[in-house]
Design a protein around this nucleic acid. Structure first.
Lengths: 194, 194
DNA sequence: ACCTGAACACCGTTCAAGT
DNA sequence: ACCTGAACACCGTTCAAGT
C-alpha cells in the first residue's frame, strides 16, 4: 500500500471527481460550489484554494466530459463519439459549450474532425471551418435535446406545461439526419475545390 | 391624446420593454428580476403578477429579439437575418436558445427555412430536418461568438487571462463559410432525392 | 388590476486565520 | 499545502396585505 497521509485532504482531481458526482445526480442547476464542498465534507471557501473561480472548475469538469484521447475515423463517427460523451452527463453539452466559448477548453474532437475533413479533400483552412461547423451542429443539437429533457422533468412535476409545442428536434433521430446533411455539405465543399 | 390613467402602472409590454433596456446595457448576467424591477421603480414581487417566473419573462424577451414577421427568401438570406437579430442584443443567442429548448418560443425563421428548403427540392419531412439543422448552426455559432465577446470583456479587466487560446471560430467570417457548407449539404440532400 | 414589504432558502466570492 | 469561519453582496420565489 502507498503511504496514507495522516489527515485525508483533497487535491484537484478529487475536487473534480466530487463535482462529477454532483453533476451526475443533480445536473447543472444543482452543481453549486456549496454542493461540491458538501460532497467533500469541507467548507465552500476551501474550493477556492484549488480553483480561482467556478468557471475554472467547470472547465475541468468539461475536460473530463469530452475526454482526453484523440479518436481517428470518418467525420460522422467522430461527431457521434463526441455526442455520446456529451450525453453521458446531464447538461453535458451546455457545460462544454460554455467552457469552449470562454476559451477554457481544448476539444480533441475538433482536431480529429479537421483531420477527417482534410482526408476527404479539403485544404487546411477549409478543414478548420468544416470542423467548427460540425462541432457547432453537434453541440447545438445535443444541448437542445438535453434542455428538453430537463423541461420534460419540470413539466412532469407541473402538468400545466404544454409538453408538445411546435418545437425543434423532438424526435431523437433528427441528429443523424441533420448530421448527414452537414457532412454532405463538407463533401460538396471538397468536390467544388477540385 | 388618449386618456391617461391616474397612476402610471405597468402592463406586460412595459415589463418586457424594461427588460430589453436592462439586457441592452447589462447583458444576460445583469438581467435579474431585481434589476428589471428597479428599471420600472417597482418591487421585485410585482413582476410575478405579470409573469409566473423568470423563464416566462425571458421567453417574452426572446420573442422580441427574434421578431414576429416571416421573411421569405433563400436559406442563406433567412439564416443571416436570424443571426443579425440575435446579434442586436448581448447574449441574444443564449437567451433564444434556452427559450427554444424549453419549448417556450415560436421561431418564425424556422418555418421560413423549411419553406426555402422545400423550394429547393426537399420533401416536407426532410425540409424540417434541414430547417432545424440550419437553426442549430446559426444559434450555435452566434452563441459561441457572443460568449467570446463577453470573455473578451472580462479578459480586458483581468489581463492575466490568455486571450488567444486555440479555440473555435475566432474570425467572424467563419459564420459565412460554415453556413455555405450547411446550405450545400441541404442542396446535396435535395439532389440525392431526385 | 397592479403593487408593497418582508421573508425564505439559496447563490459566488473574499479574507483573515488556523494546522 | 489545505482548510475553517464569518462575512458581503447578491439571487429567484412566495405570500399576506394594500389600493
Amino acid at each position: 500500500m502507498n503511504a496514507a497521509p495522516a489527515s485525508a485532504r483533497n487535491d484537484k482531481p478529487a475536487v473534480v471527481a466530487a463535482a462529477m458526482r454532483v453533476l451526475a445526480d443533480s445536473g447543472l442547476p444543482g452543481l453549486s460550489m456549496r454542493r461540491i464542498a458538501d460532497e467533500l465534507d469541507i467548507q465552500v471557501s476551501a474550493l477556492y484554494w484549488h480553483f480561482p473561480n467556478k468557471q475554472a472548475l467547470l472547465a475541468a469538469v468539461s475536460a473530463e466530459i469530452v475526454g482526453a484521447g484523440s479518436a481517428a475515423g470518418e467525420m460522422d463517427a467522430v461527431a457521434r463519439a463526441l455526442r455520446d460523451r456529451l450525453l453521458m452527463f446531464p447538461d453535458g453539452a451546455e457545460i462544454v459549450s460554455s467552457s469552449l466559448a470562454l476559451g477554457l477548453l481544448e476539444l480533441p474532437a475538433r482536431d480529429d474532425l479537421a483531420t477527417a475533413a482534410q482526408a476527404v479533400g479539403l485544404d487546411a483552412a477549409a478543414a478548420e471551418v468544416a470542423a467548427d461547423t460540425v462541432v457547432h451542429y453537434v453541440i447545438g443539437c445535443t444541448f437542445h435535446e438535453q434542455q428538453r429533457v430537463h423541461a420534460a422533468i419540470v413539466g412532469a412535476a407541473d402538468a400545466s406545461v404544454d409538453m408538445t409545442p411546435a418545437g425543434i428536434g423532438t424526435r431523437p433521430d433528427g441528429f443523424e439526419a441533420g448530421l448527414a446533411m452537414v457532412v454532405a455539405g463538407v463533401r460538396a465543399a471538397a468536390g467544388a475545390k477540385k
